[in-house]
Design a protein around this nucleic acid. Structure first.
Lengths: 219, 219
DNA sequence: AGTTCATTGTCGTGTTGCGGACATATTAGT
DNA sequence: ACTAATATGTCCGCAACACGACAATGAACT
């Protein structure tokens, strides 16, 4: 996986500034001018677009240690193609694109590291496409829950992952491209099955073994 | 769009060799060792994966002027994640990864150009995800036909695009994640509508205006 | 503690699209 | 030209899911 060196972290802190966003805060919006690159210190960020009829479609989730708003800067496109929203309390490092580009030129290997990052992301996006074609709704739901749990959870015994996630069903529906109602019933199936454990409206654990049974042959 | 300079083209020809593949030829397969990078001179290439039960899922199409097999090389992953197959007569330029990486270091701006390419591709992949969520089958079919026509066709008057494409309906089904039968009926609707024109089994023209009416609000 | 708002559960009903089956048409092989 | 292999058209039953409606539950604000 993608990992910055201490030196790179330091450099980023020098040219950027830390900001905290509350849950639901919009970080940037589709159509806006491209000025900054963000580095995620903690929390989840949703990359999405709002359709003409008001629906949301999210195309990716970004996790700590990842950059957002990067593609536009690297490809010199002046407008954001997607919006970004904090799904959680999020701590970001904001850097303006000029010093960021200078860093690209200054710091050896940073450029090739970003190249790796972009390649990984492309692969991820292709996997998402693959999953969309292969998996019916329940599989996609399982996939997303698993991914979020793996990114943020602490492993217990067996395939158990302890997490602490407050994500509404509507949000999940946007991510997997399903209706809210369908997510509701599917989640209940997963609960009965013991694949996921909720405390109130907070997801507290997932049983990855069981969860994987809902996913189609992934390869 | 992505475009190589003459100098870069020349360099590539020096370190690589041209090869012709017939339609249906597999260029590389998922799981294979990563050794080469390919540059498409002419023809279409399908990037796909075969599922356990034999179905194919294609996640992208690549057109002339694009690289394939690039992501694995840039991210130093030793195995191909997807397979690539010629959808046409395809002319490729094969380069081994070592001289290719040397070129990256040698040729100024080549690296940043590839960065742009990767960014564009990521954006494309995200758009594909978006379209999958937003568009029902007929919309996805229209999108793919339009894209292929735009990439290979010569524009006539109005929104007309003259092309010459031999793609089976099964192939289209793999690309849009639908069943062969559904593609068959939808294509007939498109023909009746005048959105596409066939001569035998060859697609010869698309009426982009009409075709676009089958696509949901794309932004 | 009470009111308000957001979130979730659960019905119907209607549509879309899959997948099997089979006929027909077209292309390729020898 | 004849045969085999591929590709296409079409019908039908079935399952998955969307979408509207509304109730019930839980959370947040004052």
């Amino acid at each position: 996986m993608f990992q910055l060196t201490d030196g790179e972290q330091e450099y980023l802190h020098e040219i950027g500034s830390e900001i905290n966003y509350p849950k639901g805060q919009i970080i940037f919006s589709s159509g806006q001018k491209t000025n900054e690159v963000y580095y995620i210190i903690s929390g989840f960020v949703k990359i999405y677009r709002t359709t003409a009829d008001g629906r949301q479609v999210s195309v990716a989730l970004r996790y700590p240690g990842d950059f957002i708003g990067l593609a536009e800067v690297l490809s010199n496109s002046s407008e954001r193609g997607y919006s970004a929203e904090a799904m959680d309390k999020v701590k970001l490092l904001i850097t303006w694109q000029d010093p960021f580009k200078k860093m690209l030129a200054d710091v050896p290997d940073f450029s090739s590291k970003l190249m790796e990052l972009m390649s990984d992301r492309l692969r991820e996006a292709q996997n998402t496409i693959y999953d969309f074609i292969m998996n019916p709704t329940q599989g996609r739901l399982a996939l997303v829950l698993l991914e979020m749990a793996e990114r943020s959870g602490s492993p217990g015994e067996g395939g158990l992952l302890n997490v602490s996630l407050k994500v509404t069903q509507e949000e999940l529906a946007y991510i997997i491209g399903a209706s809210r109602q369908t997510v509701s019933s599917l989640l209940n199936l997963l609960k009965e099955d013991g694949s996921v454990k909720y405390e109130g409206r907070e997801l507290v654990a997932v049983e990855s073994r069981k969860l994987k049974k809902w996913i189609q042959n992934s390869k």
